[in-house]
Amino acid sequence: MKFPSHINLPREAREELVELLNTCLATAIDLHWQVKQAHWNIRGRDFISRHELFDTVADHVRKHADDFAERAGNLGGYAQGTIRLAAKNSELEEYDLSAVNGDDHVRVLVDRVANYASVVRAGIQRCDEADDPVTTDLLTRILGEVEQDLWFLESHLYGSDATARDESSPPIIHEERTPGPSA
């Protein structure tokens, strides 16, 4: 631990939580810039609504990054939030630069936001195991916002030829990801 903290959690639990929060921080920073990549390069049908939606999602994720970093600091940790560290420690794949039209960008973002939600959801379980209701609450609040953003993004694909699914197809389930190394 880099800094003193009198939060009533064992040092080992705080260290594990800081590691988790830094993984979430890296993933949020990466997602923010991936969403901005789509925002800057969106073209085609529904341009303005998607352009504005992407900006809203990017703003949400930027705020999440700040929340992750500040909670890591609360626990006595050091927030690792540079662009280079984010690229190295993110749980996301690189943005698909072949995405050109609006549906392509939305599909890429649906995938990335769903993966981000999985990282946050797995983090909630780890916080519960560490008996840290404050970080659990933080991640739960963030997950609610992420899932709403995911719904807004997915709704842009509903009825589109780009979905390649009909209503009788089973839902796409993203594998739950555990952020960072587990204890």
Score class of each variant (00 low, 15 high):
residue 116 Y to N: 00
residue 52 E to T: 13
residue 119 V to A: 10
residue 84 R to K: 13
residue 121 R to E: 13
residue 149 D to Y: 02
residue 21 L to T: 05
residue 146 V to Q: 00
residue 111 D to Y: 04
residue 152 F to T: 00
residue 48 I to A: 11
residue 25 L to N: 08
residue 21 L to Y: 07
residue 94 E to Y: 07
residue 52 E to C: 08
residue 111 D to R: 13
residue 129 E to M: 09
residue 77 G to T: 07
residue 165 R to I: 01
residue 7 I to Y: 13
residue 183 A to D: 10
residue 37 Q to A: 10
residue 159 G to W: 15
residue 169 S to D: 15
residue 47 F to H: 12
residue 153 L to K: 05
residue 113 V to R: 04
residue 69 A to K: 08
residue 126 R to A: 12
residue 117 A to E: 03
residue 69 A to R: 11
residue 125 Q to P: 01
residue 141 R to V: 10
residue 153 L to P: 05
residue 164 A to L: 07
residue 86 A to I: 02
residue 170 P to S: 12
residue 34 Q to N: 14
residue 132 D to G: 10
residue 1 M to A: 08
residue 106 V to E: 01
residue 170 P to E: 13
residue 14 R to E: 10
residue 127 C to D: 01
residue 43 R to A: 10
residue 95 Y to N: 08
residue 156 H to T: 04
residue 20 L to E: 05
residue 173 I to T: 13
residue 129 E to S: 08
residue 106 V to W: 01
residue 128 D to C: 07
residue 29 I to G: 02
residue 155 S to H: 05
residue 166 D to L: 05
residue 9 L to G: 04
residue 179 P to T: 09
residue 154 E to D: 08
residue 140 T to G: 09
residue 101 N to A: 11
residue 181 P to V: 10
residue 136 T to V: 07
residue 93 E to C: 07
residue 183 A to V: 08
residue 44 G to T: 05
residue 115 N to F: 00
residue 18 V to I: 15
residue 17 L to P: 12
residue 8 N to Q: 15
residue 78 Y to P: 00
residue 140 T to C: 00
residue 148 Q to F: 09
residue 96 D to N: 15
residue 131 D to K: 11
residue 49 S to K: 15
residue 117 A to V: 02
residue 13 A to T: 13
residue 60 H to C: 06
residue 49 S to C: 00
residue 98 S to N: 14
residue 162 A to M: 01
residue 63 K to V: 06
residue 134 V to S: 01
residue 45 R to C: 03
residue 163 T to E: 13
residue 101 N to V: 13
residue 21 L to D: 06
residue 128 D to M: 13
residue 45 R to P: 03
residue 115 N to T: 12
residue 14 R to P: 08
residue 131 D to L: 06
residue 156 H to M: 14
residue 59 D to P: 02
residue 155 S to L: 03
residue 31 L to R: 03
residue 84 R to L: 14
residue 40 W to F: 11
residue 151 W to E: 08
residue 135 T to E: 05
residue 20 L to A: 06
residue 105 H to K: 05
residue 127 C to K: 00
residue 22 N to E: 03
residue 112 R to D: 06
residue 87 A to H: 11
residue 182 S to Q: 13
residue 176 E to F: 04
residue 70 E to C: 01
residue 178 T to K: 09
residue 84 R to G: 12
residue 86 A to P: 05
residue 102 G to H: 04
residue 20 L to F: 12
residue 132 D to Q: 10
residue 112 R to Q: 15
residue 69 A to H: 10
residue 30 D to Q: 12
residue 145 E to R: 09
residue 108 V to D: 09
residue 47 F to I: 07
residue 36 K to W: 00
residue 45 R to W: 05
residue 81 G to Q: 11
residue 22 N to C: 06
residue 177 R to M: 08
residue 73 G to P: 00
residue 116 Y to S: 01
residue 118 S to M: 15
residue 150 L to C: 08
residue 17 L to S: 15
residue 51 H to N: 11
residue 118 S to F: 04
residue 56 T to G: 02
residue 135 T to M: 01
residue 168 S to C: 02
residue 139 L to Q: 03
residue 162 A to Y: 07
residue 19 E to L: 11
residue 148 Q to I: 06
residue 35 V to W: 00
residue 59 D to E: 14
residue 141 R to P: 04
